[in-house]
């Protein structure tokens, strides 16, 4: 067993916090691990990545070779592009769909999300909306790790234990916010994947899961939404018009 994960984002988005949680979960599970990270100049708003590897055997390189990553976990969608060639052909991408625009030549969002959505093994989440629902926009990194948790070798509790450890110093409230961000991220990812396995494409799955009340997302409701969406694609616009008040359980209301 060997798992190679590229963590990607922009300096200040909390990539090293994601690494901390995964490192400790890997350690608890008794795996060997190496985790290379970026310090110094790049942390000032530049592209930041970390290579995290864990295995049941000793690991040689601190860096993941091209085509050997099992997962790219990105807190920012453009950053997926930067490391995509590291992904195994059968590897997965879990990414925030929310751009961090601090450069003048940031690509057109529609095109970027289009390219990401065309990749079958991807989970996209509206990390900003979920983090806001959790209580703090800075918790987007925990939303993404929650979303990725459905693919990882650890139970949510094994990961959450270290989310708590990470924020314990900052008080109970911050711990609760980050726990919630993780849980909302996980549920959004389950909902997203359930839509896709029910025949909805990645782009629409992102749109729908971004439009519903974050706390209401429930994978069990996804097949119902998939049927509704297939019958009436205009439902996405209707939900958008209704604002944030539509819950995952409301799909029947939009059927006809």
């Amino acid at each position: 067993m060997e798992k190679n994960i590229i963590l990607a984002g922009v300096g200040g988005q909390g990539i090293l916090s994601v690494a901390y949680v995964l490192d400790n979960a890997a350690l608890d599970a008794g795996y060997h691990f190496k985790q290379a990270e970026v310090h110094g100049m790049s942390q000032r708003g530049g592209a930041v990545q970390s290579n995290l590897r864990y295995a049941d055997h000793p690991i040689h390189s601190d860096l993941i070779p091209r085509g050997e990553a099992d997962l790219i976990l990105a807190v920012e969608p453009l950053e997926v592009m930067r490391y995509w060639h590291y992904l195994k052909p059968e590897g997965w991408v879990v990414s925030s769909a929310i751009p961090y625009v601090n450069i003048p030549d940031y690509p057109e969002m529609e095109k970027l999300l289009g390219e990401l959505s065309a990749f079958p093994n991807i989970i996209l989440v509206d990390s900003a909306r979920l983090a806001r629902a959790a209580g703090n926009m800075r918790s987007q990194n925990m939303v993404v790790i929650g979303a990725a948790s459905i693919l990882l070798d650890f139970t949510p509790e094994q990961l959450l234990k270290h989310v708590e450890g990470l924020f314990a110093r900052k008080g109970e409230k911050i711990v609760a916010v980050n726990r919630k961000a993780f849980e909302l991220g996980r549920r959004a990812a389950e909902f997203f994947r359930s839509l896709v396995t029910s025949g909805i494409d990645n782009g629409q799955a992102l749109q729908l899961s971004s439009a519903l009340v974050p706390e209401s997302l429930d994978a069990l409701q996804a097949p119902g939404w998939a049927d509704t969406l297939k019958a009436r694609p205009e439902v996405l616009e209707e939900i958008a018009a209704a604002g944030e008040k539509v819950s995952a359980g409301d799909f029947a209301r939009f059927r006809a």
């Binding site: 995509w84 060639h85 990749f119």
Partner: peptide, 12 residues
């Protein structure tokens, strides 16, 4: 590898 992005990626 899984994917080679078609265009050069904007530097950050």
């Amino acid at each position: 590898s899984a994917h080679d992005p078609s265009e050069e990626i904007a530097k950050r």
